[in-house]
Design a protein around this nucleic acid. Structure first.
Lengths: 331, 331
DNA sequence: CACGACTATCTAATCGATTAGATGGCAGGA
DNA sequence: TCCTGCCATCTAATCGATTAGATAGTCGTG
């Protein structure tokens, strides 16, 4: 990266121009902590404007020990669920005048730890962690350094950091209830390879609700459209495709839709489908997905409030059932 | 945000523990600029490890005038195209040991400018700008402050910042050629409300290729699935739906697919479709979209290389045609 | 007219890491 | 033995903003 050419304007430059000390300039810029005479204030403001002075937040951060920057650890921003969540978190932080440092940790505990370490070195004021299955307790790592941290979407079992998540159990019950009202008695469930995190909660809620049903099938594949697509084609070819399915994520649901289309399996006529994420994606698939909609915005806002200590505990937000076409309801 | 409780370990603490001056500790931590005796180096390293010393990058930044942080200005991270691009950019920066500050400017020139201002105050070492239609020339704003900046996806007309974009014109030609080989003579084009940026290039390339064809229809709607969905339903209801369509973005294509499904219009039989983005989304729609695939990763890497001065000009990257189902080709 | 009580400003220490210049010690050559 | 060089290390200035403590003016009152 090319070196910056001209030296930037400093507080001292403005002070010189306005004929005051650096202290009064600082008082003017920050409206305090001491008052400044109106006339002087004018001169300072004018000088700052003329020189196009821009306060150096790094210097301020060094002195005040707070950077106004919050770190956001994500699994993968290109997954629309996490992308949307990230966007809402960034917005909630922006509203509080904080900047957001992001990092994608993928699904690796190591990279998660490494990223957190770098954020801590950068002196972030706080950390929002969107954890994937099986990471370490990075919030503890941050808290050991005196930096507040909260989890969103997925907490660390045994850790004592706050966690913001939707009420997944209620969501699953709504989905199951709805499909049963459509007359389905046997409900399959498609989830990821492990049972950690909110996805595990979802699976457990399903399992509890279908105990006693010998036909209740548990399917698993990676969290990707491609994997769900392939699995669907395979099941259809084997004649083993269930008639009603709940998917743990939209990625799964979209992959199933794609596989079903490729096999000529009509949805919802031959396959009723409800997904448990409800990202904005789900409204415009073919057919449109019925979902329980994770309140991403509310979750993001709660996480930030928690981080700032504005609230002391997160409420499990309700994930309402949004009925569209894939469950079998009419348009 | 709660204040941090215990005072952090500083270089001076390590020096005291190791029985040396702060200078040697610094030399050890940074491997230079002066050599340190092996025995001393050991002692310093040991002391640092015992105290769990973590260098304060803010202090380092103040002194060295470089923060190791790059700002990334996005329109909207929850749009999967931008989300995926953001992810690749973050990764390319990470590879060079830089942290990424993100901000979503929406589609507002004002918020774009505001965000840039904040990034500059935070002393970013550089700026990667993914601009939406109609923003101001924020790269110029950065360069005036001596901070290098590059545009990705969309440059600013008249600005003299570097721009990384795919070869959209070639992509459009490939798409048109492919649909013509399917026997379509009349090709419609769906784009956004304005003709700025790469989308404008795409539209212009289409317009040039279909001059003389009185049936070539230009359609416009907002960059959202919902808008494209609604437009499609409307056109089908009016009997005005074209038989072959190129969409400027995947968002448009997905909306069209969704609308077509809802109207019972079969794709590709009654509507052949090619989209010009080719995000990962497009592989798992129903039916799978044929696209010209924007080389997001290559674009992200070029942008970062450009920012660091590793290359002096961007090559318009090729956006290959990926044939799937929506154009009418068989699986 | 002088003194306390303010008000408006200035001076200078501070945050933590970097690094040029100063210093001390030891080896080898004259 | 003394000097030159070199190596390892130390001292202290520096980056830019913040802010407590010191210092000038100003006003009112006894």
């Amino acid at each position: 990266m090319t070196k910056r050419a001209d030296k930037p304007i400093t507080l001292a430059d403005v002070a010189r121009r306005a004929g005051t000390s650096t202290a009064v300039v600082s008082y003017v810029i920050n409206n305090g902590p001491r008052p400044v005479a109106a006339a002087t204030r004018e001169r300072v403001l004018a000088a700052a404007a003329e020189l196009r002075y821009r306060p150096n937040r790094i210097a301020r951060a060094l002195r005040s020990r707070t950077t106004g920057v919050v770190g956001l650890v994500l699994p993968d921003a290109s997954n629309p669920y996490f992308g949307a969540l990230a966007r809402h978190i960034e917005q909630a932080l922006e509203k509080r005048d904080r900047l957001t440092l992001v990092g994608n940790a993928g699904y690796s505990a190591d990279r998660q730890r490494h990223l957190t370490e770098r954020f801590l070195a950068a002196q972030v004021d706080g950390l929002v962690i969107v954890a994937a299955d099986g990471g370490g307790d990075v919030a503890a790592q941050a808290q050991a350094a005196g930096v507040p941290a909260v989890y969103v979407h997925h907490g660390h079992p045994g850790g004592h950091a706050q966690v913001v998540a939707a009420d997944n159990q209620a969501a699953v019950h709504e989905a199951i209830g709805h499909l049963r009202r459509h007359g389905h008695r046997s409900l399959a469930f498609l989830t990821g390879p492990s049972d950690e995190g909110p996805v595990g909660v979802r699976r457990a809620a399903w399992a509890a609700a279908v105990t006693g049903d010998p036909d209740a099938v548990l399917l698993r594949c990676d969290y990707s459209r491609g994997a769900a697509d392939a699995l669907t084609r395979h099941l259809v070819a084997e004649g083993a495709m269930p008639r009603a399915l709940i998917t743990a994520t939209d990625e799964h649901a979209i992959g199933v839709l794609s596989g079903a289309w490729a096999c000529g399996l009509p949805v919802p006529d031959r396959l009723a489908l409800i997904s448990l994420d409800g990202t904005p994606e789900s409204a415009h698939t073919a057919p449109a997905l019925s979902v329980t909609e994770q309140p991403l915005r509310a979750m993001a806002e709660q996480a930030v409030e928690l981080l700032f200590g504005d609230i002391s505990a997160a409420l499990a937000a309700h994930a309402p059932l949004v009925v569209r076409r894939s469950c079998g309801c009419a348009a």
